[in-house]
Design a binder for these strands. Sequence first.
DNA 1: TTCTCTACTGTGAACGCTCACAGAAGCATG
DNA 2: CATGCTTCTGTGAGCGTTCACAGTAGAGAA
Lengths: 343, 343
Amino acid sequence: MTMGNTGGRRKPPTIHDVAREAGVSRGTVSRVLNGGHYVSPTAAEAVNAAIRKTGYVVNRHARSLITGRSDSVGFLLTEPQERFFEDPNFNVLLRGCTQALAAHDIPLLLMLAGTDDERRRITRYITAGHVDGVLLVSSHSGDPVAEELRAAGVPLVACGKPIGLGSKVSYVAADDRDGARDMVRHLLALGRRRIGVVTGPQDTPGGVERLAGYREVLAEAGVEADERLVVPGDYSRASGEAAAERLLARAPDVDAVFVASDLMAQGVLTALHRAGRRVPEDVAVGGFDDSPAAVAATPELTTIRQPWDRISAEMVRVLLAQMGGEDQAAVILPTELVKRDST
Amino acid sequence: MTMGNTGGRRKPPTIHDVAREAGVSRGTVSRVLNGGHYVSPTAAEAVNAAIRKTGYVVNRHARSLITGRSDSVGFLLTEPQERFFEDPNFNVLLRGCTQALAAHDIPLLLMLAGTDDERRRITRYITAGHVDGVLLVSSHSGDPVAEELRAAGVPLVACGKPIGLGSKVSYVAADDRDGARDMVRHLLALGRRRIGVVTGPQDTPGGVERLAGYREVLAEAGVEADERLVVPGDYSRASGEAAAERLLARAPDVDAVFVASDLMAQGVLTALHRAGRRVPEDVAVGGFDDSPAAVAATPELTTIRQPWDRISAEMVRVLLAQMGGEDQAAVILPTELVKRDST
DNA sequence: TTCTCTACTGTGAACGCTCACAGAAGCATG
DNA sequence: CATGCTTCTGTGAGCGTTCACAGTAGAGAA
């Protein structure tokens, strides 16, 4: 009696065992597994019973070996730093993608490519066919990985419109420009006229679009543009604080600020508080993202909600479509103004 | 000329191509790939050159098929809700694990098992051998998945000591009890004697241990225990706010609060502020985690830092050891008191 | 010389699956 | 009765690797 199985892993049943159990051939079992076409109802039932009885689970390695597909998808992060992991939106995105893929029984491989070295390794890994498609999260422009993957013909969907990659890559994004427009219109409706803006980095699509929306609405409303009201930030809390200080120095009569991220808006609030300006009485502050930071702030931030749950679902949908041979596509999803206490 | 290769994926080189290029046999190439033992220097050099020239990457599916290993590791989350994804520590953990595994060229599969249905599916998937080991993140007790995986002999490392699973499962944890002791000692050293505590859920190891540490230090210091000073929370910001209100009602003379998480501590600060108590003058507040919430709070929180980067590294180390046949182990890592403005 | 031992190399046989193909059976059509 | 078509089923080949084994060559010992 050598078969102890004391905690060890038993050899799992193969398609052969199922076939024998069901009294059919491998081929028939395989057909049942892959959609059940050209299988008689009797045979199908016998196979399903045998699968239940044996506890059979298809060996994906064997399947992948012959099909050339891996039935898995990569979630690729090409940020140099931990920035993304501190962004709560990122989590919602990751979770949403994992769940949406799980519904298709597709596992998600998390890949981090921070350094050049890692980028090379990951690119090799992906182009070698170990994932069937890639969900790309990389805000900055000129990402060489995206370009290489695209050139290698790997199905690819980016989160946010990639800058400088031509139009050849699919993406799903919130309507940043429209969200910014909503916010600035909201501030105008409150009677504010000296509206400042703290921008995001101008090498990110969000940074560019949100600033553009701000400019458009002011122009449409006939409010005089004043470049002293425009200060750059990098999405970090600290940069928001510094930007607000510059803004106050350059345009002391500012009566509202549109900040391109909630995190920066937190910094702006801190700086305004220190300068003795009341929010929203003296200066109204509008954020962007509707992240947890928005409700954590005092006062709670009026902000623009990005539909992250829909974004993740759409990214997966577009990627699967592309893996199925469809052409690339761009999906733009609407944002929503969330009014709280800071305006 | 049918070979257009217009964006499509070329057939990747196989071990055969490398062998032919190097003028050796498959076997020799395979040996080079797997450590290079019993290979002459000349042959090894020829093979390596051929690999570089052809751009060969080993087909993991083929390898896995025969070895029975998958060379990948699962990161399993069995939380019913999105709780974890809102926890910044979780991100650090996930990132740390991904990086530590990447150093061994092992991809990480992210698995979410929120519902019973998903749990079943994931358990099947794992026990079918599609990952070689599992990093488990599940704070609550009585997790059936962990038990099943353990029974199936799947290498497993938990984050935090699993409650009610016997001692048969490896885990890596911060020294919650010792961290709590440090914090309470710190509060005592400031001269506080009416020290309240907002606990975490008592079905989580952290919740239990942090409370225990609190009680121990007070007992050692000869401070009278008062159950009115002990109020439960669930790690959420809202529960911290509610807890602080109860605490103030039950023990108005409280002069310090040890809060079992930074997020709850934020809520505590809000409630104290509303009640007109100054922090730290009237009431000192100590948090736990050193999450971003700690510096986002006003005043910035004194807290206990958990060594998340080391925790992830250790989890991976222990898991790999276990996959290599070593016995299970428990690793407890020290915490650190971070003094800021709230005490 | 002959034998043994070590270092190295090549080869066939798997691993578990899908795919292409061939064949069988049933039925309608010529 | 032959022919074609459709639906179903079984079989052999092969995906790219590792593993076990059988060699070969050269060095050292008997």
